[in-house]
Design a protein around this nucleic acid. Structure first.
Length: 639
DNA sequence: TCACGGAATATTTTT
DNA sequence: TATTCCGTGA
């Protein structure tokens, strides 16, 4: 099976099982296949599945690979440990949390929670003089996260990238320290902490490092170009004496530098692991030659690249097309028409995708698709767990698991009439004083709080018994309580109520409350059908709308990239920074290399950009000025 | 202490 | 366009 299904480079990678291995895998070169077969090879050779660690970029990616491996070999492959760096870190930290002083566990803060916490602190110890601009909580989080991910002091991040806030540096630094303190007090880890604490654990406790690294004797890391410094350090620490580490990546597809990732990790891997074997996968199996010609010319113009020549044996195929449309709506109608044409030619909807730079770029298209009755699913962009109504419900559930969670208590209490931050603070303090977990709320001794809201809330908490209730039973109880509030608060409550129903059905899959809450933070649902939270997909024939970031690693028969307009893609904010512009180029490269047979770039003209006051009309500089024999030009005027 | 209204501010991608 | 911030009146 190995010889039949793999080319010689892939086979070499699969058979190289001991020692450090770097696989430079171009787009569509069978990277996933190589990783999958390597798993089956190891298992087949008798390596215990539990000793294999497969770190991927999303949980879905590792799930898919292991499912495939199971089909190829047998169910042993299901036992392979797979997941993201963050989920792996979570599992390890759970196991050894007492070492780090978190005896009673901890919960994970997602991005908005972290910002909320910072927002609270900002109010408490914020800027002394209110006359000047002070960074918002979001900006503060960006500064802190960058400092952690790039392993730089906050001072340096501020003076390098946020020099306009330099006069507030002292306050920013003390906020950072307060943020860290509060996380510890309330038993919280944010995304960055998961990685940082894992690294600390591995560094400071050699015995634990030894135990973990000997448990995972074979480590594989996918999408290595999108790892950051801490992740690379973790890989190094995990590799132990055997150094059986295989990393796979493509520097041309590095698109997460905003998260601290740096593709240089790929380049320096052989320095970290002397004796690294390097294998290049350069045959593309995905795209027809005309598409490859185009994608090569996109990436050829990159200033910094590590030469790689992709070739394909897939002859034939038609030229990629660049379409100029009048305005946003004619762009949408153009996409709809082409999709209908292809569908009539026998291409199912789920083999076509529309990709875009940012979630909101698809709004107009979604309306047109609805009008044309084309079923679609949207991936990425908007996150449901961050919408207010979902957050509201989750807050009630979170205090059940972690009664120290001040943010959630505040959120719950502020929903009630006549209760503001001050009162919420008093209630929070008195709940803690009871020292009986969330049930402490039932006997709070705060004078003069007798609102109907508080009584209803007490009802809810007295009804829920976290030791006997299943996760979804808790969800249902909270939902019963919350729905009247929802109706009061939002005029679009029917739609939001549907999301909540769906949330409860997701809860049914979980046995433990902690697992549910952790997944909501680390692996939140990010797909929607008709603007409503949805998790069942691929079962029906639906067109895929996706951000380019969420499309990474996937492929479709026909791909449409919309808003290929200079100032949108690349984003107008990237235009004055070379490194950001280069990242946008790689992003365009990722988008284009998703296509197997047909590739369309579409851009509307005469778009007024509010932010800059400029009118955007040029096609994206990444595909502008490409000769007609590589990229065909069309215009919607011609119809 | 809360609730509300007007003003100011702004990017986007995700674990 | 939406969110978030700040001041004012109740």
């Amino acid at each position: 099976m190995y010889k039949k299904d793999l080319n010689s480079s892939q086979l070499e990678a699969v058979n190289f099982t001991d020692g450090p291995l770097l696989v430079i895998a171009g787009a569509g070169s069978g990277k996933t296949r190589t990783l999958t077969y390597r798993v089956t090879r190891l298992v087949e050779e008798g390596v215990s599945p539990g000793a294999i660690l497969l770190l991927t970029f999303t949980r879905k990616a590792s799930f898919e690979m292991l499912k495939r491996a199971t089909q190829l070999l047998d169910s042993r492959c299901e036992k392979v440990s797979g997941g993201t760096f963050h989920s792996f870190a979570y599992a390890m930290l759970r196991r050894y949390s007492s070492k780090l002083g978190f005896d009673s566990g901890f919960s994970v803060l997602d991005r908005t929670d972290a910002e909320g916490l910072i927002g609270m602190l900002r109010k408490e110890i914020g800027p002394a003089s209110k006359s000047r601009y002070f960074p918002r909580k979001q900006t503060l989080m960006n500064i802190f996260s960058r400092s952690v991910n790039k392993v730089l002091p906050v001072e340096e991040v501020v003076s390098n990238d946020y020099s306009h806030f330099i006069s507030d540096l002292d306050t920013i630094v003390s906020l950072f320290n307060a943020y860290r303190r509060r996380k510890t007090e309330e038993l919280f880890f944010d995304y960055d902490d998961l990685l940082v604490y894992l690294k600390t654990l591995l560094t400071n406790y050699p015995d634990i490092r030894e135990r973990i690294s000997s448990a995972y004797r074979y480590i594989m890391v996918d999408e290595y170009q999108d790892t950051n410094q801490i992740q690379a350090d973790i890989v190094y620490l995990l590799s132990g004496n055997t150094q059986n580490v295989m990393v796979v990546g493509d520097d041309s597809q590095s698109i997460y530098s905003f998260r601290g990732a740096h593709f240089k990790n790929i380049i320096i891997f052989p320095d970290m692991f002397p004796g690294t074997r390097i294998i290049r996968l350069e045959e593309n199996y995905r795209s027809v030659q005309p598409i490859l010609n185009l994608t090569n010319s996109i990436i050829d113009r990159a200033t910094e690249k590590y030469a790689k020549v992709l070739f394909t044996r897939r002859s034939g195929g038609s030229l990629p097309v660049l379409v100029s449309a009048g305005d946003e709506n004619s762009q949408s109608r153009c996409v709809v028409e082409k999709i209908q044409d292809l569908y009539r030619d026998g291409i199912p909807y789920n083999r076509m995708a529309v990709l875009f730079r940012a979630g909101f770029h698809a709004f107009d298209l979604e309306i047109e698709l609805g009008r044309a009755e084309i079923p679609y699913i949207k991936v990425g962009g908007f996150k449901f767990v961050e919408s207010a109504h979902i957050k509201d419900v989750l807050a009630h559930i979170r205090v059940l698991a972690n009664p120290l969670d001040r943010l959630s208590w505040y959120r719950i209490l502020l929903l009630l009439d006549r209760i503001g931050p001050k009162t919420a603070g008093k209630i929070y303090t008195s709940v803690l004083e009871e020292k009986s977990g969330y049930t402490g709320f039932l006997s709070i001794k705060v004078q003069a709080i007798h609102t109907p809201g508080i009584d209803r809330l007490k009802d809810l908490f007295s009804q829920i018994d976290s030791s006997t209730f299943s996760v979804s039973q808790m969800g249902e109880a909270v939902l019963d309580y919350y729905l009247p509030i929802l109706r009061e608060k939002y005029d679009d409550h029917p739609k939001r109520a549907r999301d909540l129903e769906h949330l409860v059905s997701i809860m049914e899959r979980y046995g433990k409350l902690e697992d549910f809450l952790t997944d909501m933070a680390l692996d939140p649902p990010n797909t929607s059908i008709n603007d409503t939270l949805s998790t069942d997909y691929l079962e029906e024939d639906r067109l895929v709308l996706s951000t380019v970031h969420s499309a990474k690693g996937l492929e479709w028969h026909s791909v449409f990239v919309i808003w290929c307009l200079d100032g949108r893609f690349p984003s107008i904010h990237a235009l004055d920074s070379d490194t950001e512009l280069e990242e946008e180029r790689r992003l365009m490269y990722v988008a284009a290399t998703r296509a197997m047979e047909n590739l369309f770039f579409i851009y509307p003209t005469d778009i007024y950009d509010r932010g800059s006051g400029r009118v955007l009309s040029r096609p994206s500089q990444f595909i502008d000025m490409i000769p007609d024999h590589i990229l065909r030009k069309e215009s919607t005027d011609m119809w």
